[in-house]
């Protein structure tokens, strides 16, 4: 057991931090529901931060650390699937990369757009293709998630088959989603603790009310749990670990999604405060891989058969 960051990992995270510093705050007057930046995306690619898993001395734990760190930003970046799933399928797939369950075409797909790479997982195995204009249907102007999203309308019959198993891709996807959720939980928590420490009612900071302190402290415990479960799942490559990590992440997302908006009062209903940039990404992640029930069943299956 060795749970501290090694030198390489520290260095990678320091690089990530300095590269993303200009993106740590929301641009003035921005009130969009989802915030993205092509410049940030390009910089991450150019510096190889989304390809660390294949580097021998870095590997999946470092990739998960990078994904977690990036998710703390108010900007939505397609990092999780590119970093942790793509290497198993084809490291050369052009980004953004989306994963779709064959049976779940009704659900909106994060980061899908024409020319995105789509990995399809289902009973017939793992396939991939590049989405055409015709295969992508916009979700319209009013999407209430803080990710760019669209619908996949159909799958080409001649999609490329890959050797990797569907189970293995799902395992990696669970790690990816859990690592992303860990960062989102941390970003949202920081945003809320800052607000309630400054906001005063009844002559004292809101954060001094024990009713709130306990719920925030519990959120810290959950956030910390998701962080470690995600990293462990990345490190062990175990299916049970991966399913538990995502289950725990989705449980946490459900709880804080309510609490955090609650703690901000009406301010949490505005687009002028950035909280939604984290919570409305977490909401989208709660439906991934079938949600809490499905991931709980997957965990039970992996652990006890």
């Amino acid at each position: 057991m060795q749970l501290s960051l090694n030198e390489d990992q520290t260095q990678v995270l320091d690089f990530v931090d300095s590269l993303t510093r200009p993106y740590a705050a929301v641009p003035m007057h921005d009130t969009s529901f989802a915030l993205t930046s092509d410049a940030l995306d390009g910089a991450l690619m150019d510096n190889g931060f989304l390809d660390v898993m294949a580097v021998e001395e870095l590997g999946p734990v470092t990739a998960a650390l990078v994904v977690e760190r990036l998710a703390r930003l108010p900007f939505a970046v397609e990092a999780a699937v590119s970093s942790l799933v793509r290497p198993l399928v084809d490291p050369e797939l052009p980004r953004p990369v989306c994963v779709v369950e064959e049976s779940a075409l009704r659900k909106p797909v994060r980061f899908l757009k024409p020319r995105a790479s789509v990995i399809v997982v289902g009973p017939s195995g793992v396939r991939s293709f590049t989405a055409s204009e015709a295969q992508v249907r916009s979700a319209g102007e009013e999407v209430l998630y803080a990710y760019p999203m669209a619908y996949l309308t159909d799958m080409p019959a001649d999609a490329r088959r890959h050797d990797v198993s569907a189970g293995e891709v799902r395992r990696a996807l669970r790690v990816a989603m859990a690592a992303e959720a860990a960062g989102l939980l941390a970003g949202a928590l920081a945003s809320v603790t800052t607000y309630v420490s400054e906001r005063q009612q009844f002559g004292r900071p809101l954060a001094t009310f024990q009713a709130m302190r306990h719920r925030l402290a519990e959120a810290q415990v959950l956030t910390n749990g998701v962080y470690w479960l995600a990293l462990r799942a990345a490190g062990t490559g175990d299916s049970g670990d991966a399913a538990m990590a995502l289950l725990h992440a989705q449980e946490a997302a459900k709880k804080v999604g309510y609490d955090y908006h609650q703690f901000l009062g009406a301010m949490g209903m505005t687009l002028e405060h950035p909280l939604h940039l984290w919570t409305y990404r977490l909401k989208a992640l709660t439906s991934e891989l079938g949600g809490r029930g499905a991931n709980a069943l997957a965990a039970a299956e992996a652990i006890w058969g």
């Binding site: 659900k107 999407v143 998630y145 619908y151 909401k283 709660t286």
Partner: peptide, 16 residues
């Protein structure tokens, strides 16, 4: 109920 819909009918908040 809000959480149920987001988890099981996520398309509801994306135009469906």
């Amino acid at each position: 109920v809000c959480a149920f819909i987001v988890e099981h009918v996520p398309e509801a908040l994306a135009g469906a």
